[in-house]
Simulated scan of single mutants.
Amino acid sequence: MPKFSVRGVWQKWRESYPKDGSKADDAITVFTGVPTIYTRLLQGYEIMDPDIQVASASAAKQLRLMMCGSSALPYPVLKQWEAVTGHRLLERYGMTEFVMALSNPLHGNRKGGTVGKPLPRVEVKIIAEDGCEVSSKGVGELCVRSPSLFKEYWRRPEVTKESFLDGGFFMTGDTVTVDEDGYYVILGRSNADIMKVGGFKLSALEIEAVLLEHEAVSECCVLGLPDKAYGEIVCAIIVPHEDAKRRAERELRPAVSLEELQNWSKEKLAPYKIPTKLFLWDTLPRNAMGKVNKKELKRLLEERTT
């Protein structure tokens, strides 16, 4: 396909596995995408006619494997996709500098909200801000050493030097922790997704995953805004579901208010993680890989608030 198309992807799957139970010679067997792609596919599925929904879900179930990467997959999206297609998305973690390093198992327990464990011959460790290695359940920057690790950045010796620890471990710039089963959890980019609020280090990705459970929220982005008292405050930018927008327009109110969101969040988030600022937008700026461009988002926020 020349570019991603919600309708086109579902159609390709239906053509691969027709309703008569046959299989096309060029049938799609493996699919991989970023979280935004799966969100868009689910939105497209929800507006299909019932008979097309049945055919689409049945066709999707026939694929051998579906994977997700590039950024954290919200747990509600994981569960909804599994309910529709029967596929529990295989989440894994990699970078251009070393290809794949961590992965949930092809056969075995794929834990939502994690990127699995180190692949064979891949070594990892977690380094705190003070440069010391932290315990398995600590929080810090993920560092990787692997046979597939790159040698250097082209003609950038200083950047190369700054990117490696003694012993050949590459500093990924991603903040992680490890759960009780040894599965790695990506908390976000250290310079973009980790907020410092009143002495607490918070993961924007963790808060985003919770907010996506709200019935009115289609997409969201959480980031820290400068604050004199707390250093940063938690700000949420939300794209409401279309039905929530229509209902709000009829009732002459916002699709979701800050007070409503805060009350809803009390049973799901610690008090210091609850957003104190809320913006409702129609879309979120994204890069070519489908990730929310938080740098651009902050710039747009500054424009709208000045």
Rank of each mutant, 00 (worst) to 15 (best):
K117R: 14
H107T: 06
E267N: 13
S58K: 14
E206K: 12
K12I: 02
P2E: 12
L211M: 07
R250Y: 09
T172D: 03
V30P: 01
V256C: 04
P240V: 10
D227S: 15
P18A: 14
A24G: 01
R40E: 12
I47Y: 07
I207S: 03
E123P: 00
V139R: 11
L300N: 08
A288N: 09
G44Y: 06
K294D: 06
K295I: 15
Y38N: 02
A236N: 03
T29S: 05
K125N: 10
L149C: 14
G188C: 06
F200K: 11
L42F: 06
F170I: 10
E213G: 00
P285A: 08
A288D: 11
L278D: 05
I186A: 05
K298S: 02
E242L: 15
E141L: 05
G131P: 09
Q62V: 04
K23W: 01
Y75W: 02
Q62L: 01
Y17L: 10
G86F: 09
K151Y: 10
T276N: 09
I28Y: 00
V144W: 10
K161N: 10
H241T: 15
F170T: 03
C132W: 00
L149W: 12
D166R: 07
L211Y: 02
I127F: 09
K268M: 06
E302Q: 13
L63S: 06
R250T: 09
L78S: 11
I238N: 03
N287Y: 03
W264S: 06
G231I: 12
A101M: 08
Q11E: 13
V34H: 05
P147A: 13
V134P: 01
S163W: 05
R110H: 08
R92H: 10
L187M: 12
E232P: 10
G21K: 08
